Amino acid sequence: MNWGSAGAGGFRAAMSEQCPKILIVGDWDADGIIASAEMVYANEVAKAFPIKGNKCPTELRPASPRTMSEAFKGGCWDYVIILDIPFTQEVEASLDQLTASGCRPKIYYFDHHKITIEKSTYIEGKYSAVTFIGLSPTSVLVKVFLESIGVKLTPRLKDLVSSAAVLEGGGWLSRNNRSATEGMVKLAASISKAINQSKDPELWRKYVQWASSVLPFEVSVVPSARDYENLVSKGLEVSERSDKEIKEVATGLAMTAKAVGFLKLVDARGKWNKSGASALASALYKITRGTVALLVSKSDDTELLIIRSGHGEAMRIAEELFKQGVIEDLGGHENIASGRVRKGISDKELEDAIRKASLAAFRFSGQ
């Protein structure tokens, strides 16, 4: 049927009135991208979630806890699906602002961060939300949920979920399912690094759409498939450049590491103001072969402390610092945790707090 320009516009307007408005907000990293792709597939292909038989497109927006308020700007939705974003004070404030504006969406919250797990009952009570939480990576939690309602994921999505489990290093899938190939794990890691380097929302959306696509890898005669292949190649190229830069910077910074308690403190303020601070902390951990606390400054003059360990010390140290009131908006996992340094804390106060926190954490672990 030929609608003509006016007719097509009228048709789209009519459809927009009938369609429920669905917003997917996912983290920037591989786990968030893959989880978002699973939800796009469940809605737009399987037509099974968040409502059955839905034929309406989803709106995709990437976010971190600090930028959640930006993701909620300029709209009101019937359904909001939050994926792989820890429930920090900033996220709570953003949700409060959304509901205060009169928007009352049905909220689904999928996450594996410790703070969200601990706050799940609170989230459900305050926002009438439904939470799906657990220790496995968020994309694994989404996979288990979707399979429970009869959604069969594509082989590509299954492989990507397995890869995310390997990258995240936790949960039953990484222990019991070794189906992820080295190439797919590298691809997932490359996508994550490319996005973290660029922080480009449109590029993030393209990766989500690629991951949710039913087109096989080998299809190259279709223009969209060629676009996807170019997208993957770009991710690999950016990843290689990023790895090289991070390794070079980490090698230099490792020489400045200062022993504070049972860890090494690296002050990178003024030396690293890009994305990828977590990757830098991991590189420092490998070089120093011990628990590392990395201090970086952001463009808005806030300071972040990122702790990287190998046996669960990172989160215990971060929790001790949070209890002392030294850091705010605690997030992360057992072996990589982060928080925003509270305004007004001097360098000496921070070092003293880190020393006490590391002693308490290592005493707890019996090391």
Rank of each mutant, 00 (worst) to 15 (best):
M1N: 05
N2V: 09
A8Q: 12
G9W: 12
G10V: 08
F11H: 12
I22K: 02
I24C: 00
V25G: 02
G26D: 00
D27N: 15
D29I: 03
A30W: 00
I34S: 00
A37F: 00
M39H: 01
M39K: 00
V40Q: 01
Y41K: 01
K47M: 14
A48V: 04
A48G: 06
P50M: 07
P50S: 07
C56W: 02
P62A: 09
A63D: 02
P65G: 08
F72R: 05
G74T: 11
G74C: 12
Y79D: 08
V80N: 01
D84V: 01
P86I: 05
F87D: 04
Q89T: 12
Q97G: 10
L98D: 04
G102A: 05
F110C: 11
I115C: 11
I115K: 14
T116P: 11
E118F: 12
T121A: 15
T121M: 13
Y122I: 10
G125K: 08
K126L: 07
K126P: 05
S128W: 06
F132H: 15
I133T: 14
V144A: 15
F145I: 09
L146P: 04
S148M: 11
V151T: 07
L153A: 07
T154A: 05
D159E: 10
L160M: 11
V161R: 04
V161H: 01
S163W: 05
A164G: 09
V166E: 04
G169T: 06
G170I: 02
N177K: 09
S179T: 09
A180E: 06
G183K: 11
V185C: 09
S190P: 11
I191P: 01
Q197T: 10
L203P: 15
W204I: 14
R205G: 12
Y207Q: 13
Y207C: 15
W210C: 10
A211M: 13
S212E: 01
V214G: 13
L215M: 14
E218L: 14
V221I: 12
S224F: 05
V232K: 13
S233A: 13
K234P: 02
E237L: 10
S242V: 13
A257T: 06
K258W: 00
A259G: 03
V260D: 01
V260C: 02
V260Q: 02
K264I: 02
D267W: 00
W272S: 03
K274E: 13
A277Y: 03
S278I: 04
L294S: 06
L295R: 15
K298I: 08
I306K: 07
G312D: 04
M315Y: 14
R316F: 00
A318M: 04
L321R: 01
D329S: 07
E334I: 00
V341C: 02
R342H: 04
K343E: 08
S346P: 08
S346T: 14
S346G: 04
L350Q: 14
D352M: 14
A353R: 00
R355Y: 12
R355N: 12
A361V: 05
G366F: 03
G366E: 05
